[in-house]
Amino acid sequence: MNTPLPPTAWTTSDEPPLARLRWAAGDAVTVARRYLIHLRSAPERAAMALVIPLLFTMLFVYVLGSNMRPPGGGSYVDFLVPGMLAQMAVFGIAASAAVVAEDKDRGVTDRFHSLPMSRTGVPVGQSLAECLGGVITLVVMAGCGLLVGWRPTGVVAGLALLLLVRYAFSWLGMWIGLVMPSRSATDFVGMLMFPLTMISNIFVPTEGLPAGLRLAADWNPVSAVVAAVRELFGNPVAVPADAAWPIAHPVVATLGWCLLLLVVFGPLTVAAFRAPKH
């Protein structure tokens, strides 16, 4: 055995805070790197990340969009694609819940727990990995959109905001994955994605909805995200005079939602991950 090994009994709890932070960052990068290796080792997962945006473009642009006219004219594709990009960002909840719950089921989480590594490093690394997954999905989705005639005036600010959304929502997903008893128990998250994205302004303007439903749709965080990226991509929709506050101030509202998710589910997730279980 010639490789020099680190000391066997170093103690993370006894280190100065700055050193601990440095090691925690290193652990997070190692955990995030694992996701890239997953893509390489299981190409079928990578293929899924490509197939879903393609499928959704087909379904919504050509089936649903064949007979839709957006409010105030313009193309339905310009109305729809920013919404579908937001949808992809929000789907991160289900993805991260599944990944975290699967690790827990398989005993990988216990292995991490038994290591002298940073306990914050694992969820942070997992969330970074979700971001990487988000970049792939969003870029593919945007590419599909451009192919079917989406014409944004700029993409950087919009995609950056969507990445932040994906990141913030992944913490909610991870928390769900950690508190659920098993991987299969997280399936409901996938089901919840339907009302969460359908009761919003992704596919239709909310003005035409029944009053109660419209209230729900306007205050649905997804609607604020969609309105914000329509603005940032240069595909804005005229804001009705009686619009709810998040629709009238979508970028601020989106940043607020993200901050709220991070402030609430960041600490909850880290705590759920640290807590010794049964």
Partner: peptide, 16 residues
Amino acid sequence: PARVRGSIALTGQYAS
């Protein structure tokens, strides 16, 4: 617990 984790390895059904 952190010191314990610095001294142990867990295998088998306990950790995958």
